[in-house]
Each structure stands twice: as C-alpha cells, then as structure tokens.
Design a protein around this nucleic acid. Structure first.
Length: 215
DNA sequence: GCCAACGTTGGC
DNA sequence: GCCAACGTTGGC
C-alpha cells in the first residue's frame, strides 16, 4: 500500500481521549433501516471527492488529485482517511469490485468531475486510523475493533472534458424545476458527503455531458 | 479568508 | 435522548 496521502476526509475522527460513553457507530443507521434501504436502493456508481491542491494538516500534504492516482503503482491506490460514518458505510457495505466512480476534485480552484476510476478491492481496514502521525489518526480506534475502512480504486480514464461543479449545479437547479435527471443529486442534497452514491440515470446523464460543449 | 450547512460531542 | 456548542467541509 502506498504511503500517506489522504483523500477528502469528512469530519475528523474523534479526538477526544476520555470518553465515558462509547458513542461508537452511533451515526450508523439502525440495522433494520440499513437493510431496508439497501434492499430498495443498491448503487453501483459513486462520486468520491479528493483535493487536488496542496493543503497541509499536521505537516502532511493532503493533496491527491486524479493525476496523483494516475501516478500510483498500477494506477491504483487505497482510499484512506474517510472519517464519516455514512461515507464509511457506503464503502464498507455497498462498494463492490467493478463499480464505477466519478473522481471529483474538491476544495480547489475549479471543483468538478475530472475522470473515472473503478473499485478494484472491496472494504478492508484503513490502517491510517492507528497511525498517530497521520492526519486522520483516530485514537478511539482499536486494532481489535477498527472503526474505519477503505477500498482500492484504479484510474480508468479522464473525462473528455472536465465537468465543473458550476455546470452541474445549474443543471441541478433547472432539473429541480422541471423534474430532470439531476434533481436529487447527492452532490447538492448531501453536499458534505465525500463518498456518495450516483444513480444509473445520473451517471448516464453526466457521462453524456462530456460529449457536449460546455454551456 | 469567510461562512453556511451540517455532523459530532457531551452535559444535562 | 435532547440539543447547544463546537468543529469541519468545501464553495465562493
């Protein structure tokens, strides 16, 4: 596994030391709801956010754009550093080998979708939770009870053109008015989630944009 | 750099 | 188990 570099990390892992109460996984959906949900909606397409511009946390550069993924061995890397329960649950419970992912650039000059990657390894323990030097260290995670998980993603291709957030946003807004495909897109309804599901219809619609002129 | 939105913490 | 305070995300 390549060393240290972190994707958009969502909320920080709990930093507190002296928890009386174990709040572990409190934000998980109750088992029943979770079962029900995944029975109803099972996703095979995703958006994963990462920061393509340098930003230092604890002296570590969090930069990891699609060009960085390309440079990895086998153009593959582990998606470590996710510290949000919903994002984790998507990775842990629903991502399967072969699923397609839009690689999204966040917290940068021009946010948007840069390319496509795919899941090549399903959920396993995110080692960075145990590493006190890592910006995403979680002191509450124990080796025998890991809290955070990751998947491996492999670069597939760049989009024919970068699809900026601004374009998706204006489509989202007009689709909200006319019932179009992107009306419920998680990118806007769940803006802070760094790992989000994309419906087949949304995926096809967005992919088609790369063939069009920028509007 | 600002700050709205929203997830998390922890006292009660 | 509520909810105020706090912390983070990420667009702008």
């Amino acid at each position: 596994m390549p060393p240290k570099k972190s994707k958009t990390s969502d909320a920080k892992g709990p930093k507190t030391s002296s928890r009386k109460r174990k709040r572990e996984n409190e934000n998980d959906l109750p088992a029943k709801v979770e079962e029900k949900k995944s029975a109803v909606e099972s996703y095979s397409h995703w958006i994963m956010k990462s920061e393509p511009e340098s930003r230092f946390e604890n002296g570590v550069d969090l930069k990891f754009g699609i060009e960085d993924l390309k440079k990895c061995k086998n153009q593959t890397d582990c998606w470590d550093g996710v510290r949000n329960y919903q994002a984790r649950n998507f990775m842990r419970d629903q991502m399967k080998i072969g699923h397609k992912v839009f690689f999204y650039h966040s917290n940068c000059k021009e946010p948007g979708i840069a390319g496509i990657c795919k899941i090549v390894k399903e959920s396993y323990v995110d080692h960075t939770q145990f590493d006190s030097k890592d910006p995403h260290y979680d002191r509450s995670a124990k080796k025998d009870a890991p809290k955070w998980f990751m998947v491996d993603v492999k670069f597939e291709r760049m989009l024919k053109r970068f699809i900026p957030l601004s374009e998706l946003k204006s489509l989202h807004l007009s689709h909200k008015a006319d019932g179009g495909t992107l009306k419920n897109m998680a990118l806007f309804t769940r803006a802070r989630l760094s790992v989000q599901p994309v419906t087949q219809e949304e995926w096809d619609f967005i992919l088609n944009l790369e063939n069009e002129e920028k509007t």
